[in-house]
Design a protein around this nucleic acid. Structure first.
Lengths: 226, 226
DNA sequence: GCTGTTTGGATTGTTGACAATATATGCCTT
DNA sequence: AAGGCATATATTGTCAACAATCCAAACAGC
């Protein structure tokens, strides 16, 4: 949670984080119109920083704001979630390719260590969806930053992942295929370790596509609903 | 410029547009620290809407804002421009693929008409870089929206294109290969018209990659500088 | 009884003033 | 004379009040 060098943490940042997590966790239900003053009293903020945070959130597409008509959290649909995964597929494929070319040996070692701890977490806390999700997020996070592509990492970490996590909370944990996902993660890490960019890209794209299909079938079979 | 249904246009939006175009056009030089009050007097704004706009711009990565230390426009590098094109390659490839699957016949006809007018523009105004750039932007814009992928279109049109256009203005027009680009555009349009998604994706990726290489060689040979 | 208008209330957008913080200058110490 | 520290200024972050706008309910007209 706490970053290394934490410059003066302004109220607007606080508001931004609060609202973002609230949206992701579903505390702010989508579609419902919500007033600024209520948000202020709910998060102990004033309207100045709040409005700045709202502007940022709107720019990131997490909420819609019509002038003089209030804000509302974006309503979600299964199709849009699928579209998000299609974007992730190509972007994370690129990230994996560039990571294979540019990651340092140390970063690769850390990546593998992450997978080890992830494995023990899965064994110990079976079905503890939260840790699985966090481990999955950590893996993809490392590859995104390892791509050495600032804009790519920004778009993945700053936009897409928050969106996906929002859906995830709403679906009360999606994947539920920890072992298979872990195996796929390992193979991606191996491809990166052997500096095989094309293979890493291919495996990553297939990995995300599999996750997408997994969710799609669950939605279609009615296992989970949106 | 003027959109069809223009909801009440708030000052913050105005500030956002002003600053964005100023950044893209280079009126705000990168790296230079600039104060809020100066920005206000320069664009006839007050600090409230200005700050909101600054938040949005920062969220989009066009400027960096350190608390109590002012804002500065992102400084650009040739490598970052190359990274942008790599992102464009995969994302627009996806857009082309989905556009081939989802565009209406009317949209495809419009796309082809766009290319026709683009051709006449190139013939009439040889070397008029501005129109070439606009035509190119129009083509890619149509495909992005035609993908029926809201988030993809938002990321392309809302983030990447502004970045690329910023660099473009700074390089005082890049491509300079209108005929070849037009031919590539036509082949992409044909692939979309024949509903061949994979081909459209392949051609689009190659098209953007070629543009990237074109700029890269120009930078390396010193034809243009950043 | 229904539609169109009008008025009232509430909410958002905006403004200006106040407080907190970082940078820069000058002084003191070594 | 050079470096570090303290102060001072200027700039940003924050706050509370004002003005503009939209939504809803009530009333009049058909």
């Amino acid at each position: 949670m706490s970053e290394a060098v934490l410059q003066t943490y302004t109220r607007a940042d606080e508001a931004f984080d609060c609202l973002q997590t609230a949206i992701i966790k579903g505390d702010l239900v989508p579609g419902e119109k919500i007033g600024e003053v209520e948000l202020c009293s709910r998060f102990n903020l004033t309207r100045g920083p709040l409005r700045e945070a709202l502007g940022r959130l709107e720019s990131r597409g997490l909420l819609i704001r019509r002038p003089h008509a209030g804000v509302k959290v974006v309503s979600v649909s299964a199709e849009e979630l699928m579209e998000l995964y299609r974007i992730r597929e190509v972007m994370e494929g690129l990230a994996a390719k560039q990571a294979a070319e540019r990651m340092t040996d140390q970063e690769i070692a850390d990546l593998k260590a992450t997978l080890d701890s992830h494995e023990t977490m899965i064994e110990q806390a079976q079905g503890q969806a939260y840790y699985q999700a966090e481990g999955d997020y950590d893996f993809h996070h490392r590859i995104a930053t390892g791509s050495r592509n600032a804009k790519l990492a920004q778009m993945l970490l700053g936009d897409l992942y928050y969106m996906v996590r929002m859906y995830r909370y709403r679906l009360s944990q999606s994947s539920g295929r920890p072992h298979r996902a872990l195996g796929e993660h390992r193979r991606i890490a191996e491809a990166i370790a052997s500096r095989d960019g094309e293979l890493a890209e291919f495996l990553m794209k297939r990995h995300i596509n599999a996750a997408r299909e997994n969710i799609e079938t669950k939605i279609k079979t009615g296992t989970i609903g949106v």
